[in-house]
Design a protein around this nucleic acid. Structure first.
Lengths: 139, 139
DNA sequence: GTAACTGCAAAATATTTGCATCCTT
DNA sequence: AAGGATGCAAATATTTTGCAGTTAC
């Protein structure tokens, strides 16, 4: 795990630091997406708020994580698949946000369906966000 | 126009005030979705920031407008179709955000495709957000 | 007249920037 | 040793809350 994380950082020309390693570890362990606040909580204020902001920014720029659109204000992030590269994401999978527990799931095996756009519109990225009740909360 | 707006407010048991009328007018005129900041700018600070926040909140609660998820932080709103009612939105249409001009389009005639969810997941709402270049900017 | 709405002040929260120091390579 | 990364302080932006005064009905 740690070795894999180090490899990700190295591949992206990023220094291997405690904060970055820990954040990526959290993403690997997480059931779903994480917000800045989630990470702050899970690291128990061991790292500065600002450092976490900057780490997340860097990871997004490098294509290691991606943001997930949400209808409320909150910004959440999830690990990209390997195919993602700097500046170009292939995260056209579906996200499911549970209204009960708040967990954001990446439904990796469900691809975003194609849509026919009006004349002149050129699509670059697609995000399908579903919400409702997840399998744990629907019981 | 004004009469129609008054009717919307009346139907939702809301007082007909200058601020609310103006905001709904802006939504009717807008090519796409509007953010809080857009409205503040277009009303030229004639109304208090807080009043605009509260108006938008009220409109969302009543099902007059709905929020649109965006991958950046910004919260944007657009008019709901008539079928929307309090607490239950039928805004399962597609939104297109232009990376160039920033306008958010509601593609009313394009419905969100159905997706098969894993066992135990119950869907309540679906948002398909596309981004790229709109017909005006692609020329 | 009364309840609903607004505006102002201020608090709470979220995000960004600058800079000195520390750590990775 | 040098450049990148971090932590702290502080600035900026965003959103929420309380309350007194005003307006719609």
């Amino acid at each position: 795990m740690k070795a894999e994380i180090a490899e990700i950082l190295r591949r992206n020309q990023l220094s291997i630091t405690e904060c970055r390693t820990k954040i990526l570890e959290l993403f690997q362990q997480a059931a779903g997406a994480l917000s800045h606040a989630d990470i702050e909580k899970k690291t128990h204020n061991h790292f500065d708020r600002v450092t976490i902001y900057r780490s997340l920014q860097t990871f997004v720029e490098k294509g290691i994580i991606h943001t997930i659109p949400t209808s409320d204000n909150s910004v959440r992030y999830a690990l990209c698949k390997d195919e993602c590269s700097e500046g170009h994401h292939h995260d056209n999978h579906v996200h499911f946000i549970c209204d009960v527990c708040g967990i954001t799931y990446c439904l990796d095996n469900t691809l975003t369906p194609e849509v026919i756009l009006p004349q002149g519109f050129e699509q670059n990225r697609a995000d399908l966000i579903l919400s409702g009740t997840c399998n744990k909360c629907s019981q």
